[in-house]
Design a binder for these strands. Structure first.
Lengths: 165, 165
DNA sequence: GCTAGGTACTTGACACAGCAACTATACCTG
DNA sequence: CAGGTATAGTTGCTGTGTCAAGTACCTAGC
């Protein structure tokens, strides 16, 4: 019945996507763990380091990392415990707590980043000709823009994203 | 110091990749959960349904799904409990246990698959022109082949083997 | 100024996956 | 065929993430 669907090109395409991503993630994860960081911790460090004041509200951090807010709380908890981050209260709104990179956190990031960049180049960007890479990134951007609900997402289901016909 | 590295194009590229994948996965996951399946359970069902005899050794299943063998054991445990799979002993080698799709499992797959294909088309393949999609898939294949040591164990045979670069 | 309702974050209970240790079986070599 | 090694799979322990409920706080309307 649906037997032919099992090998539908769409399935093949999404499978290829998934395999590529998980394979890549595994490579990168391996290198990061040598620096005592998980992928998500690295991303947190990176996002915070790029933010003004090296800090971000918990909610914004969660939105940028595709973690739930409780997930963000727990990651930040661990990283505070390990000295990589600290929490800063917001004087204007006492509900708000900023996650902020410490010196140690920044040092850890600096230590891991060069090897990380090398690996990205070795397994991803460097695998393709500049033109092919541009094509790939163009495609990804298009899909990302379609699939990524607005900016900071609550999953309200009724996304105001233009749907393709 | 490494401040400029924080916005390195390689970081941007991998970030785009990750965002796209997680966004896509979230969409698909949502639809599957409406059919009582997680992404990984769907993948298990799909891989088994495509395999000869609708079954696969635990080890091969694990290899095809980027699960550890213990992870595979646990997923199959749950799916057996829910009636989607059953375990078949191998008469020739009593260490081996096959995971096999039941009628109910196949029915569940058939029920979820059309909507799944629609979503892939809507958010992924249909977002791009055929040429752009081909470029994207070519790039993914190249990266996947580099990054994925030994892909399909057991029987998959779906992916066309690209030019070995 | 007090209440109603929304927002920011944390916490408790739970689901899930990985590693390492373990059991059971197969194979190989003398 | 005995003994050693390799392979298949499961299980205990633990880390990590989510959902739902809870706490604290802010803001608007009367």
């Amino acid at each position: 019945m649906t037997d032919r669907n099992l090998d539908d090109p769409r399935i093949t395409a999404i499978g290829l996507f998934a395999e590529t991503y998980t394979g890549l993630a595994a490579r990168l994860s391996e290198q990061l763990s040598a620096h005592g960081l998980s992928l998500i911790e690295f991303e947190v460090l990176l996002r915070l380091a790029r933010s003004p004041g090296r800090q971000l509200r918990m909610t914004d951090l969660a939105a940028q990392t595709s973690l739930s807010t409780s997930g963000a709380t727990r990651v930040v908890d661990r990283m505070v415990r390990d000295g990589l981050l600290c929490r800063q209260p917001c004087p204007a709104d006492r509900r708000i707590s900023y996650a902020m990179v410490t010196g140690a956190g920044r040092a850890r990031l600096d230590q891991a980043l060069p090897g990380h960049l090398d690996l990205i180049e070795r397994w991803f960007t460097g695998q393709l000709t500049p033109a092919a890479l541009e094509h790939l990134l163009d495609g990804l951007r298009t899909v990302r823009d379609a699939v990524h609900p607005c900016a900071t997402a609550g999953s309200d289901g009724s996304a105001a994203v233009p749907e393709p016909s």
